[in-house]
Design a protein around this nucleic acid. Structure first.
Lengths: 207, 207
DNA sequence: GTCTATACCTCGATAGAC
DNA sequence: GTCTATCGAGGTATAGAC
């Protein structure tokens, strides 16, 4: 899916490449230094152009931020829906949530800087940018709530904890993996499997 | 415990009050806008003084950052040690880890901006500041590793997940609660209890 | 499309009056 | 101990040549 092209109907491949490179480097710098601390001079430098040239592709720094955030959350949403919807409707909640966990982790950990930047800087960006992304975040949370509510009503989710607290805890824990996941220490599949085990059954043997 | 007083042997109460107010407001602003995005003019404004006056109390912006980070992590470390060391050495690992979880959450959630700022901005601060805090963070991680290694050797920790991955997942999940914990939705004790249940036994009923 | 040059602003930090 | 005033550096964004 191409990014919004408003004015130019015929955009050359080179244009798009530069535009994407700017977004890629911006996400990397936002992730590691924060939004405000990242200068457009740094972004331009990393993308191999001069600062002024950025404004041919973007209207402002905040527009770059907006597209970086979009790419991050869309990567996760797409990966989750894909896996959950591949299951038959009759699948157990355990299977559906396992698919959602694997999708969430995959989306997070395979679009590195876009997703990590999203998680790290969301609490710190200008209010105008936040408001623009509140809706899609709310929808994603609702999607999880529906999954967990179903699990609850089927008696698969423990009844001594709330569905909301479970959702917040689980998504939070998954999100934080971007801070410590190391792909060199074992395969992604094994990683996702261990995380799923912890989420479902905990870390301790039952008393 | 008073903060470091280097030059002045007799520091008035008013001095200390202003100094603390600067740190308090700085932590709040760092948390919500990030370190780089927060200006000393904003901090001074919030503390009820003028920007130039900050330099009577601190040498630089980075020194303020250092003290904010210190306060955050120390609050957590003290709360955890207190609770764990109050238990008899013979206590089960489950009891010890439960105490550590409650302490970690307590430290996090009752020193609001200092701990939240620490968690949020640590990945984005200048390298010099990071290096100064790496040691104490490492020591805290080692403390948890020792707790979990003991649990593993006693057969209380599940053997199909690694102790390191368990530690990273659990601490990460706990840290993220600062982003969503709402003290108006139930007591802290009940909250800590639910989190502990999830960490120990998971969110789903066993198959 | 990318460049150079630069306008205008705000930053952290300092100097010296009070 | 806090103020006012200000320095030099570096920020986003713009204008116009190429």
């Amino acid at each position: 899916m191409p990014t919004k092209m408003q004015e130019r109907p015929t955009q050359s491949a080179a244009d798009t490449a530069t535009r994407e490179r700017i977004l890629l480097e911006a996400s990397r710098l936002f992730r590691h230094h924060g939004y405000a601390a990242t200068t457009l001079r740094e972004v331009a430098d990393a993308a191999g152009i001069k600062a002024g040239s950025i404004y041919y592709h973007f209207e402002s720094k905040e527009q770059i931020l907006g597209e970086v955030l979009d790419k991050g959350i869309q990567a996760v949403i797409v990966a989750v829906r894909e896996r959950v919807e591949a299951l038959p409707k009759s699948a157990t909640s355990r299977a559906k949530v396992a698919a959602a966990i694997e999708g969430h982790l995959w989306g997070l950990l395979h679009h590195g800087d876009f997703t990590s930047a999203n998680i790290r800087i969301y609490g710190q960006i200008p209010l105008t940018a936040k408001n623009r992304h509140r809706k899609v975040r709310r929808e994603y949370a609702d999607y999880w709530d529906a999954l967990l509510d179903e699990a609850m009503s089927r008696g698969e989710l423990r009844r001594d904890i709330g569905a909301t607290i479970a959702r917040l805890f689980v998504i939070g824990a998954l999100n934080w993996t971007v801070e410590w996941y190391n792909p060199q220490k074992g395969s992604f599949d094994n990683f996702a499997k261990q995380i799923t085990t912890i989420v479902f059954d905990g870390t301790f043997t039952r008393e």
